[in-house]
Amino acid sequence: MRNTRVNLKNPLIAALLAYLIPGAGHWYQGRRFKATIYSVCILSLFIWGMILGNWQPVYSQLVYQTDRVTPQMEKKVPTTKFSFGYAAQFFNGAMALPALVQESRLRNEQVRIDHLDSELQSDFVGMVSDFSGRGDDLQIVTGTMTIAPVNPSGGEAVTGTLKASAADGMVVEYGLGGQIRLGREVFGSPRREIECRIVSVDGEELNIDKTLRGTISRSFLNWYQAPCDSQELDRLHGDLSRKFDIASVFTWIAGLLNLLAIWDAADGPAYGYGNEKPEDEEDDDEDAPKKP
C-alpha cells in the first residue's frame, strides 16, 4: 500500500526518471538522500562491471556463425539470439539502451564486405599467408596499416602499405593490393577483420600469391554494446578469465537493484517511513510475522 507520508509527486514520471538514470526519480520527488544512495551505488556498480569487463559485458544479442565465413564477414543479416543477461541489464536504463541502438544498426547496416569507401589508417594485428603451392607458411605480424581504394570514390580494388614487425623482430614494409574484404562496420568487437593481397615486400614485387589476414581497430561507437559473437566472448574470457563473468554479474545486479529503485519511486518505501510507533515497528527481520 502506498505510504501517504511520502510525497511521490507524479509516480509515473518518477518511475520513468528512475529507470533512465538511477536516483533521478527520487531527486525529482525531493528525496535527495535516497537519490544519492541509488545513483552512487547503482552507477558505480554498473561502471565497475564495465571497467572489469573491458566495457564489453553489455550486449543484447549474440551473433551465430551460420556460414563458413565469420559473422563479421557475413553479407546477410546475421543470425542472432537474445542474450538473457540483457533482460537484467536493461533496467540500468540509459546506460544499457545503446545496446538496442547498436542491435538496430547491426540489422539495418548495408554490409559491403568487398568495398572500401576512403583511406584507412590503423594498427594491424594478423598474419601473412603464403599460398605458393609449397605449403602454407604463416607469419604473425603487427604494425601500422595505411590502405585506400584505387578509385578515389571507393571500390573493391585497394592499394596501401603495412609497416610491420614480425615475431623475430624484423621490420618489413609490405605493399598491399588486390581486392579488399573488410568486416562489417558495426559489431561487438574492438577489432575489425580485414583481408587483402600482398603485392610487394620492401619495394620488391612478389611473383607468388601472399594474403594478409588480420584485424584493425574499430571505432568505439561502432563496437560499444553492439551484438558480438562467441569468438569475441572466447577472446574476452581468454584475456580476462573470471573477471569477465564477474563483470557481467555486476551489470546484471546493477539492473536488478535499479528495479527496486523504480518501484520505490513509483510506490514509496516498501516497509514504511521508518519511525512508526513501537507497536507498528518491526525489527530487522522485517518480514517476520507480528506477534498478536
Binding site: 505510504n3 544512495i37 527496486l260 514509496g268 518505501p269 516498501a270 517511513y273
Partner: peptide, 9 residues
Amino acid sequence: VYSNSRFEL
C-alpha cells in the same frame, strides 16, 4: 540499495 528501498528515514 535494498534498505534504501524499504525505508524513508
